[in-house]
Each structure stands twice: as structure tokens, then as C-alpha cells.
């Protein structure tokens, strides 16, 4: 954009310039000129206007016209295309940029990968429900926890159980087999969900939030094994954590316990909330999920 300032015409008095609206002086300006668009689609618009100080300013705007698609338009619509501007759009500043194309690519975000069904999600949601109580069968599949049917390697549900599975010993590539299979139909899959992409930490965090119980008012010398011992009678515990002060190395007085089954966690809360432990009264409650 080129801006040249020229001295205002001498027959004008400064006083008048101050009083009158700039619009009233528009007749003094040379008319708007439009060049092009040429074969490269370059269009130049030369406009003249008065700036705030009353100087005449030449504004050249160069734009490239791109033809998008050959849309079918009605005759009326084509006619409307050439309507002259009105209202505030007449005196619109060239640089006002009321209309902008987003710099950000927006996608229609799918709630789940295309091709997957909601029922399957449900199956994968409680792979542990079929586990029942510990003991009994020798052959227990580590993927779907079915007893006596197959070994882990032969598990027919391994694809389904993959996202919420708690075992971490399998290779990361197997993790993505379910999503990549459903996403081959040409639709966009965000990079984070593509095959070969690494799982983000959100999965991990969510795992920590499931059936998580917060224990507060612990005595200073309570350690994780103590807490595990305390909570084990209520059901299988998947994770125990006690917050330790970095500097002093002592307990900060609170911790988290995750249960594999929600009902167990509920029973533990009912029983242990208000329970006297090491001369202190425990406070046991559901851990509130983090806000983000």
C-alpha cells in the first residue's frame, strides 16, 4: 500500500476543514479508479481521501482475485452482486478489514473416531466388570479379564480394550490399531489420533481420575504401603499415592487411592471417612477431577 501526502488545495481555508465533515469535501477528490483484474488476477484500486490532518492521501490497494468454484447463481443474485454499497459500507476504510479469512483451519471435530460405534465404547468402558472376584480360574486374560477362555495373546477383545486397558507392558503400536482401522475412509483424522502417533498424556490422567479417592488428614509418617494396607480390604487397589514434601521428605498429609471398581471405592469412603488412624481422624472422599 502506498500513501502519498499532497498539500491541500489552496482555495480551501483551514477553518472550514475543521468544521465540516470529511464527507462534504469528497467532491474535491479525484474519483476512485479500478485497474484490472488482469490475467494474473491482480486488481488495483486507487482511492483518494482526506486523512485526519486534512491532507489528501492516495491509497492504492492491490488485491489478488481468486475464482473459487463455479457456483450456480440465480439471475437475481448475479444482479445483486453489482449493487452499490450503502449505509456504513459506503465510506468503509480500505484498511478496516471487516472481513477476514480465518488463519486457523477449523475442522468438524468428531466426538469419536468415525466408524466406531457407541456400544463398543461401552464394552471397552468396563473391561473389569466381567472380572468378578479374584481367585478361581488359572487362565485369566490380562486384556479383557475373561477367565478360562483364552490367553492374553489370543484375546479377541484386545482392540476394544486397548484405550482404557491398564496394563502397560504391550508395545505402543498395538495401542493404535483400533483407531487407525476405523479412520481409513478418507476423512480427516487429527494427527494425535493417527496410527503411529504417540498417545497424549490425557489418557493417562483420566486413568488416574477414575474411581480416585482422596485421603486427607494423614499423619506425617504414613507411607504408601500403609495406605495400601488400609484400603486393600475393600477391593483391588490400582494405585496408591501419598504426597511427599520435596524438602523435608515427610508426608504432606494427603494422598490418593484408586480402585479398579467404583463400588469398592464407595464402600471404602463410607467406612473410612472419619476413621481414627494414627491418632488422627481421616477424611476420605471422592477426588474431584481437575478442572481442565
Amino acid at each position: 500500500m502506498a500513501v502519498d501526502a499532497a498539500a491541500p488545495p489552496s482555495k480551501l481555508r483551514w477553518g472550514e476543514l475543521e468544521e465540516d465533515d470529511a464527507e462534504d469535501l469528497d467532491f474535491l477528490l479525484p474519483p476512485k479508479q479500478v485497474f484490472g483484474p488482469d490475467e494474473n488476477g491482480i486488481k488495483r484500486v486507487v482511492e483518494y481521501k482526506f486523512n485526519d490532518e486534512g491532507n489528501k492521501v492516495k491509497i492504492t490497494t492491490t488485491t489478488r482475485i481468486r475464482k473459487l468454484a463455479s457456483a450456480r447463481l440465480s439471475k437475481r443474485a448475479v444482479e445483486r452482486r453489482s449493487w452499490s454499497k450503502f449505509g456504513d459500507a459506503v465510506n468503509e476504510d480500505v484498511g478496516s478489514r471487516l472481513t477476514m479469512v480465518s488463519t486457523e483451519e477449523i475442522i468438524l471435530e468428531r466426538p469419536r473416531a468415525p466408524g466406531t460405534k457407541q456400544e463398543e465404547v461401552k464394552v471397552a468402558g468396563d473391561p473389569l466388570a466381567s472380572m468378578g472376584k479374584a481367585g478361581a480360574a488359572i487362565m485369566v486374560c490380562r486384556k479383557c479379564f475373561k477367565k478360562g477362555e483364552h490367553w492374553t495373546a489370543m484375546c479377541p477383545y484386545k482392540d476394544l480394550a486397548a484405550p482404557t486397558e491398564t496394563s502397560i507392558d504391550k508395545p505402543p503400536s498395538a495401542d493404535n490399531s483400533a483407531t487407525s482401522a476405523g479412520a481409513t475412509k478418507g476423512s480427516y483424522v487429527p494427527p494425535s489420533m493417527r496410527a503411529g502417533a504417540e498417545r497424549t498424556g490425557t489418557d493417562m490422567r483420566r486413568r488416574h481420575e477414575e474411581n480416585s479417592v482422596r485421603v486427607t488428614n494423614l499423619s506425617e509418617d504414613t507411607r504408601e504401603p500403609d495406605l495400601h494396607e488400609l484400603f486393600r480390604p475393600f477391593g483391588s487397589v490400582s494405585r496408591v499415592y501419598v504426597a511427599i514434601d520435596q524438602k523435608t521428605g515427610t508426608s504432606r498429609g494427603f494422598g490418593f487411592v484408586n480402585f479398579t471398581i467404583r463400588e469398592d471405592a464407595e464402600r471404602a469412603i463410607n467406612k473410612l471417612n472419619g476413621y481414627g488412624y494414627d491418632n488422627l481422624i481421616l477424611r476420605v472422599e471422592w477426588a474431584a477431577p481437575r478442572a481442565n
Binding site: 473459487l68 457456483a71 452482486r81 449493487w83 454499497k85 450503502f86 449505509g87 456504513d88 459500507a89 459506503v90 468503509e92 471487516l98 472481513t99
Partner: peptide, 18 residues
């Protein structure tokens, strides 16, 4: 206070109703 009309293909402002 001003309703506005835009071209629906490229978003250019056609006018306002003052």
C-alpha cells in the same frame, strides 16, 4: 443498532440499515 447485509459467498459487506 444497525442490521447489516453481507455477500454470503465471500463475506463482503454490502450495506447497513441505519
Amino acid at each position: 443498532h444497525t442490521p447489516t447485509v453481507w455477500f454470503a459467498d465471500n463475506g463482503e459487506r454490502l450495506g447497513t440499515y441505519r
